[in-house]
């Protein structure tokens, strides 16, 4: 466990020093969602039908784009090497980085989502499901994306490759996340779907950092 708290604190501190890293994904999320009414149609019924997919795809892209820098700056400055030679479990330091990243990038997305949902004409009654879904889904997206980020960390122009690797892996979370909202719109029970999202999250959190740690070692040449 040594290193978890220190790394968490450090990541939060880093984000405070360069707030753009935190604000940009949020801004991206809002802008992308706002594009759809302009591109498709402002008709309320149509918007409502599209809303689950639009919000989830936008959130997914925002998370993925924010992950490109998760290990890259550390790799470029040599900090990653220090992390790898430190006598701590890489599992926990990686987990700390992801938890911090989710608190700083993922949580704001969850908090702003109801506003966007309202703008896309979602009834207020389903906004809770939207938030629960994102609350359970975005951490999984972070972990899965971080696996891709760990494998592409040493590569130039790795961000496009990251998208190619990660987007197919995101499909289940997207299907269940958007699906839960779709069911809520039809007034069907959503708890089973949210439970599946929770199960995916449990799997991602337990096995994910293991894969990320391995990916980082592979990327640095071990």
């Amino acid at each position: 466990m040594r290193g978890f708290n220190a790394t968490l604190q450090r990541e939060v501190l880093l984000a405070m020093r360069s707030p753009a890293e935190v604000i940009n994904p949020l801004f991206f999320f809002v802008v992308v969602v706002s594009l759809f009414p302009l591109a498709v149609s402002p008709t309320p019924d149509l918007l409502r039908e599209m809303a689950p997919g639009v919000i989830w795809v936008a959130a997914l892209l925002a998370v993925m784009l924010s992950l490109d820098g998760l290990f890259r700056t550390d790799e470029e400055t040599g900090v990653l090497d220090q992390l790898l030679v430190a006598p701590v479990e890489l599992y926990f330091t990686v987990l700390a980085k992801i938890v911090a990243h989710w608190l700083l990038v993922g949580l704001p997305l969850v908090l702003v989502a109801p506003v966007l949902g309202y703008m896309l004409q979602l009834p207020v009654s389903v906004l809770g499901t939207l938030m629960w879904g994102l609350l359970l889904g975005t951490p999984s997206l972070m972990v899965i994306g971080a696996i891709g980020a760990s494998l592409t960390v040493g590569l130039r122009r790795g961000s496009m490759l990251l998208a190619l690797l990660v987007l197919p892996l995101y499909i289940p979370v997207l299907v269940f996340g958007a699906g839960s909202l779709g069911r809520a719109l039809e007034a069907l029970p959503v708890n089973p779907v949210l439970a599946v999202l929770g199960a995916v999250l449990a799997l991602a959190l337990s096995l994910g950092p293991f894969a990320i740690a391995l990916g980082l070692r592979i990327s640095t040449g071990d």
């Binding site: 197919p168 892996l169 289940p172 096995l207 894969a211 391995l214 990916g215 592979i218 990327s219």
Partner: peptide, 13 residues
């Protein structure tokens, strides 16, 4: 090695 890790993650997925 990178492809190995991705394949394992992919199979679970």
């Amino acid at each position: 090695r990178a492809a190995s890790l991705l394949s394992v993650v992919g199979v679970i997925n």
